[in-house]
Design a protein around this nucleic acid. Structure first.
Length: 854
RNA sequence: GCGAGAGUGGCGGAACUGGCAGACGCACUAGACUUAGGAUCUAGCGCCUUAUGGUGUGAGGGUUCAACUCCCUCCUCUCGCACCA
């Protein structure tokens, strides 16, 4: 045995051996219960960052434990390989995106292997390969046939910097999710997936996910889907229906004006009728140019213009003025709202600003609202007044009654509205899946034939010209129409949003080489759904909602049997570190700071805890850490420093602690190596153990129990590792008194290695192979189990309190009679009860005695 | 504003269905071994206090023999959504 913990030798040796043995290979076996672990696959940006290391480590630990617990585990890895950075690299450096991407994949793959991730690499996929994206196209065409794809004209989110459109989900605070630049509105005809058809089911499906998914992810999705139930009612403009949507039909008698979005078709008609209404025309033009953020940001004044027209109230028949207003959004509801200033704050402010009347129709219990004294709208509950036949009803009942009435007289219907919009999937980029559609002069827009798939990305493109690069490839553009055979046809030059790739990759892993379908049905039904998914919270809405949508679509296409793709989801926190900022010199790398001062100007630096990033110069390079401490140490630190779902603060001294822990384990094995090597713990006779040996036996079983719970039930790796550290402390200080004690020490050491194995596999395997009789591999063992009968204590510590305050501890035999304990307890705390009388004695068996005294 | 979550030593974090608050680690202090220590080992370590003792889980109140844990009021922070009709 080596004298030092040479992790670099150990890790290299075992990584090679494990690969040869192919321990991570997953093979369908109907006899065995499967467990599918999946870490969100990475974009091949070139280098692994600590965030990757964290996800992979968490997922790897779970797969290793599950394997040892006898599950047939699949833990596949792959690459989310389409996307903008590759294309930008092509534009900037003249490297073809494919070349750039595959270089990066190669590099990152070797990094992943160096941290000991037990992926089944035979299942590796890269979404940029034709044998993968072919199935994007296939699914697209199947969805088209099912009526789930649509090309439509509309206002889309345009990112000028990325030169492409974005889906609603990809706009964050009015900015592009990728580059952070301002998103502008633009009129374009684009392809959409009709995700809204599944809105209700996506919401319903949450019931199945409760418990397995973090509550906040479900609530974010729920929020995003934004279901609201209300009344759609037709106001009339001349003889034309002008439907509005409201969730407060109980306030319909309080309507004093109506507002529509500037984009609303009625505005166009009004302007055609009265082109002289310059004020309205200018207003509409101005608002259309504004981005959503300008229009809707908090505190921004609500603006509107009277159209000069009046509409008829469906219940009262009264005429009410029609406004165009910037706060009304065309894409939500009907793009028209009834305005009830007395009971809606936004309407209230608008009415005050433009001097519109206010009419109270709901009176709260206890007080009486009067229009002249109102400072804000009253939006609470109450009794209806001034509302025709409905006056006197409480407003909750009124909602139902008014909807009923509207339906009865045919002026409206109960309606469900969703905030969720259809998924805009076209992107004006090269490095993505070509949308398999063809524009024929004669036939119009027609789909490519299934047998012609994949539509392959051409090589002869020019990235220097700007615009959509695919349009520069003659070979790509020139195509014959699949319907009429005419040569006057050209291909769609838009590619698919890369979220399409990641929406079903988990399914492709079931049979990544299948050539006849996205995946083979038996394999698919065996491996799916994913039992444990691990990834970042940033995908709570986009990726996780899209995947759920795709899964349901695949189910309806007969490809899968289940309803949901991911049974359990663990969202790991970010990896953060201190950043140092100087007012004049910007961010300073931690290594260059001078006692908290700027090395250039000696100014006091602002210290913050930030997500690791290039711009904040607080990143830690995983490669360097693995080189310096070894993969096992990095893994231990990542799991020990915080529970998985919380942010993990990088600490240079913290990782030293993790390194120390492993070194101490190595030293424990080394110290006892000669003496323990040839001892067989199986011949252990418990009755011959010394007192401290028996204690160690008990500790072994307690540790197995606790660590198993922590590692498998709630994935509390931090507390599990803490227990292993404590356990190591016990083993280290244990002095064997006889031969049987040596056996228990050996047994204890081997158990330590087996429990540590999922976390730090290399060192565990190495020491186990050195110490165990048959040089076994832990891979071939099963997860240790504890023996409950060893956990029974024959002595317990009893806490003695006086007035709830701890005054003494007693060591007593288990289940000692109450009287005996109380007598002893009184003796022990007599000092604290002198001159006082006992009012009450609380006795909790085997736990505590509390004397209440006066 | 709405929704979700969180506030515990110098720091990261523990504490099961109410029952010894601060496990484990880091930092720190003292000592040992050392030419040396950023290695290793031993001991200490919430705060106030001389041991005793007092006090302490964001603030205030309540329930209880007993509250980090349950209830009420408030404060702060993080995240998500935000003119959604």
């Amino acid at each position: 045995m080596e004298k030092e913990y040479q992790f670099w030798e150990i890790e290299k040796k075992w990584q090679k051996l494990w690969e040869e043995k192919n321990y991570s290979k997953a093979v369908l076996d109907q006899e065995k219960e499967k467990f599918y672990v999946l870490m969100m696959f990475a974009y091949p940006s070139g280098k692994l960052h600590m965030g990757h290391v964290r996800v992979y480590t968490i997922g790897d630990v779970i797969s290793r434990i599950k394997r040892l617990q006898g599950f047939n585990v699949m833990n596949p890895g792959g690459w989310d390989a389409f996307g903008l950075p590759a294309e930008n690299a092509a534009i900037d450096n003249g490297i073809h995106p494919a070349k750039w991407t595959f270089q990066n994949i190669e590099n990152m793959k070797s990094q992943i292997q160096k941290i000991g991730i037990s992926y089944d690499w035979e299942r590796e996929i890269a979404t940029c390969k034709p044998d993968y994206y072919k199935w994007n196209q296939w699914l697209f065409l199947k969805m088209l046939k099912k009526g789930l794809v649509e090309k439509k004209e509309g206002t889309v989110n345009w990112c000028e910097k990325c030169q492409t459109v974005l889906a609603n989900e990809q706009v964050e605070d009015g900015q592009c999710w990728r580059c952070g630049s301002e998103v502008e509105p633009k009129e374009l005809s684009q392809w959409y997936f009709k995700i809204t058809q599944y809105a209700e089911e996506l919401l319903e499906g949450h019931k199945e996910l409760e418990g397995g998914w973090p509550e906040r992810v479900l609530s974010m999705q729920k929020n995003w889907i934004g279901k609201s139930i209300g009344l759609q009612a037709d106001f009339k403009w001349n003889n034309e229906d002008l439907p509005i949507f409201t969730t407060r039909p109980d306030t319909i008698f309080g309507v004093t004006y109506m507002a529509v979005a500037p984009e609303h078709p009625v505005i166009k008609k009004i302007l055609e009728k009265k082109p002289e209404n310059i004020e309205l025309k200018n207003f509409v033009e101005k608002v259309k140019k504004e981005s959503k953020i300008e229009r809707t940001a908090e505190g921004v004044d609500k603006n509107g213009v009277f159209t000069g027209e009046y509409v008829t109230h469906p219940f009262t028949g009264e005429k009410t003025p029609l406004y165009a207003a910037d706060f009304v959004l065309m894409e939500y509801g009907t793009g028209a709202v009834m305005c009830v200033p007395a009971h809606d704050q936004r309407d209230f402010l608008f009415a005050k600003k433009y001097n519109l009347p206010i009419k109270v129709v709901i009176q709260p219990k206890g007080t009486e609202l009067s229009v002249s004294e109102m400072k804000e709208a009253y939006t609470g509950e109450g009794i209806l007044t001034d509302s025709s036949d409905f006056s006197g009803l409480d407003n909750k009942t009124a909602i139902e009654k008014i909807i009923e009435k509207a339906e009865e007289i045919g002026i409206g219907t109960k309606t469900v509205n969703y905030r969720l919009k259809d998924w805009l999937l076209s992107r004006q980029r090269y490095w993505g899946t070509p949308i398999p559609m063809i524009y024929c002069d004669k036939c119009g827009i027609v789909p490519e034939k299934l047998e012609n798939l994949p539509v392959i990305l051409p090589e002869d493109v020019d990235f220097s010209k700007g615009g959509n690069p695919l349009a520069t490839s003659k070979a790509f553009m020139n195509v014959t129409c699949p319907v009429c055979g005419s040569s006057h046809a050209r291909r769609e030059t838009d590619t698919m949003d890369t979220f399409v790739d990641s929406s079903w990759y988990y399914a492709r892993f079931a049979s990544p080489k299948c050539e006849s379908a996205p995946f083979e049905k038996t394999e698919g039904n065996y491996w799916m759904s994913v039992d444990q998914y691990v990834g970042g919270i940033e995908h709570a809405v986009m990726h996780l909602l899209y995947s759920r949508f795709f899964h349901k679509v695949m189910r309806d296409l007969g490809l899968v049997d289940s309803d949901e793709p991911f049974k359990r989801l663990l969202t790991q926190g970010m990896v953060v570190a201190h950043s140092f900022h100087c007012k004049t010199h910007g961010y300073i790398p931690p290594s260059e700071t001078d006692n908290g001062k700027c090395p250039h100007c000696q100014a006091e630096l602002t210290v913050k805890v930030d997500k690791m990033s290039k711009s904040k110069k607080n990143g830690i390079d995983p490669d360097e850490m693995v080189k310096k401490y070894g993969a096992d140490t990095v893994r231990v630190f990542m799991l020990f420093a915080a529970p998985p779902e919380k942010d993990l603060e990088w600490s240079d001294t913290g990782i030293e602690g993790a390194a120390r822990f492993l070194r101490r384990i190595f030293q424990l094995a080394l110290k006892n190596f000669e003496e323990l090597k040839n001892i067989d713990p199986k011949t252990l006779k418990l009755e011959n153990l010394s007192k401290s040996g028996a204690e160690i036996n008990k500790i072994i079983h307690k540790t197995i129990k606790k660590v198993t719970e922590d590692f498998t039930v709630e994935y509390r790796f931090n507390t599990g590792i803490a227990f292993l550290m404590e356990y190591l402390n016990h083993l280290t200080s244990f002095q064997p008194e006889n031969n049987e004690d040596k056996k228990i020490l050996k047994e204890g050491t081997l158990i330590l290695l087996r429990l540590l194995f999922p976390i730090a596999p290399h060192i565990s395997e190495e020491l186990y192979s050195v110490l165990s009789e048959k040089s076994q591999s832990i891979h071939e063992l099963s997860w240790p189990s504890h023996n409950e009968s060893f956990l029974i204590d024959n002595e317990v510590k009893i806490v003695v309190q006086v007035n709830g305050k701890l005054r003494a501890n007693l060591d007593m035999p288990v289940d000692a009679p109450k009287e005996a304990i109380i007598a002893k307890a009184k003796e022990a705390v007599s000092k604290h009860m002198e001159g006082k009388t006992i009012v009450k004695e609380i006795f909790v068996p085997n736990k505590l005695v509390n004397f209440v005294v006066k």
